[in-house]
Design a protein around this nucleic acid. Structure first.
Lengths: 156, 156
DNA sequence: CCGATATCAGTTTAACTGAGATAA
DNA sequence: CTTATCTCAGTTAAACTGATATCG
């Protein structure tokens, strides 16, 4: 008899890996690759991620980015300050709420993202090389479903 | 005309989110939930993860676990030392290689994993509540394919 | 007055690098 | 001789908490 504290097993009794463990493992390997790619442009992966979010959505503040990355505003402020010093982003007070400092990519920031586009796409191509286009699309859709189900957040 | 440094867009010109970004986002939300769940038993998510790996595979050392989590052996040694002090794991020299210290779960460690099984499963159920069983299975398979494609392609 | 944002300051944590001993 | 493991020690990086000011 199997004790109740055993890990979940499949039909053959093989210990199963949880979905969150699999997600973490894929995140670890893709993160390691991304670290190398963006380091060539002097960026950390966290900085790169912030830049891509800023390239996709407009009118964001440091606090918005902090919530997006599950860190405190003070932590994100340090990262943003570094990007600002390097002229990859700029900030300007929101006309409607002068407490908010709206962040924008500079031309240099957009150019940097442009240089990283191909190598990042190549890494993702390699990562999904075992999947048909349909399965890859299903993977993205399933991940988005997981994100929404757990956070209740609005779609991108 | 769209400058070459623009981010990828879909057929409607909507900026697209990369797969690695989606994976990171799902990892962030599931990680936040897992943090809360395992904190009830005085664990960090990293500690919980190490315990689940040890519950699934036998004969592992600190260095093995470090490789699995992409950290240095010294970092994993600190985590393992803490689990050992709490009697959740024990270590014994490998008979065939007395330099290796093989880690095993103690009865207390297995019991702890047992107590966490249901709440963790409940979180994953919630995360995949928008997916059919077939789609959830496909998600796991696709993630495993991604992991192998990226990590199998490189030495070390 | 309250809530959100920004910012300054100090602290903690979890990783890191380096060095040295031992076993196969 | 080389490589892998373990361990001790110090360092760094990136988060954290706390406090303060301002805007709406």
């Amino acid at each position: 008899m199997r004790p109740s504290h055993d890990l979940p097993v499949d039909d053959l009794g093989v210990p199963m890996v949880t979905l969150s463990y699999l997600i973490k493992q894929v995140e670890l390997v893709s993160r390691a690759r991304l670290d190398e790619i963006v380091a060539a442009e002097g960026l950390s992966t966290s900085e790169y991620t912030a830049l891509t979010v800023l390239g996709r959505r407009h009118g964001l503040t440091t606090s918005d980015l902090a919530r997006n990355s599950f860190v405190r505003p003070q932590s994100m402020a340090e990262l943003i300050g570094s990007l600002e010093q390097r002229d990859l982003i700029s900030r300007a007070p929101d006309a409607e709420n002068r407490r908010r400092m709206i962040i924008s990519l500079t031309a240099a920031g957009r150019a940097l993202l442009g240089r990283l586009r191909k190598p990042v796409e190549a890494m993702e191509e390699e990562m999904t090389s075992g999947l048909s286009p349909a399965k890859r699309a299903a993977l993205s859709a399933a991940l988005e479903s997981c994100r929404v189900a757990l956070s209740g957040a609005r779609p991108h």
